[in-house]
Amino acid sequence: MSFRARHLLGIDHLSPPEIVTLLDLAEDYVALNRRTVKHADTLAGMTQINMFFENSTRTQASFELAGKRLGADVMNMSVAHSSVKKGETLIDTALTLNAMQPDLLVVRHPNSGAVNLLAEKVNCAVINAGDGRHEHPTQALLDALTIRRAKGRLHRLTIAICGDIANSRVARSNLLLLGKMENRLRLIGPATLMPAGAGEMGVELFEDMREGLRGADVVMMLRLQKERMDGGFIPSEREYFHRFGLDAEKLACAAPDAIVMHPGPMNRGVEIDGTIADDINRSVIQDQVEMGVAVRMAALDLLARNLRAERGRAAAGVMV
């Protein structure tokens, strides 16, 4: 098997064959999820804890469902409301949970690198469900699966990522993944929402959305991260929508069969026009949600296999 990672902390440490392995397995789970009986017992007996230091509904629900469909015992913890307020540090919270012997830990945290720090302190497999402005690997993987199913391939596509790139971990993970799979990448957005050094990342930059969308096969819209903006990135939402909101007229610049993606939750009328989002001929936004569960099942499954193999080697006294 070509998936070797112990944790899924980011796309950065995955190789293209590992990405393909994960997506191929996710295809199986897409089929399973469309059946009436959606149960596989791959993770039976294992414990999965979803630890969210930042509020989330969609991602947490997706991970919970993924774990449950694989037969794991799933526990959700919204740490944003509990022990952090009592002054407990991230590491202590992690060590406390670790002592309860979980097998899979799914973590979201508002600080970049926090999940990496936590992964060093626990002896279970860790999945990064989003850390600050750093990475959100399962989002990039579900986007990749959605693109592969809609376009029939995951390479040599022209992909435009539009909007709040600077504050987006989704954009970073997608840049890494789609770059590794050899696609042509464009970033579109106002200069205030472009990360510093974007010019050195092997992408094309556009401030004119129409120009940036020209001939694009995939249009990936990002949510305007209002909660991460400490003031003054854009003058107003209506000006933003005028210049960078995706509407029918701007979408007409893209390839005729271009698909429209959005990681959700959407700000309708801010970054995307409602009718585009709901257009079943163009929008694959609902498919992304469906692929999300399948990709997370695949990630949990692969990490659990590696964990079992590692524990088996340890029990057999094999030095690794």
């Binding site: 970049s112 690198g113 600050g132 402005r133 050094g197 974007a198």
Partner: peptide
């Protein structure tokens, strides 16, 4: 500020 901080998502 620069490529390193942007990729690692560190406020810069």
């Amino acid at each position: 500020g620069g490529k390193f901080a942007s990729i690692y998502g560190i406020p810069a």
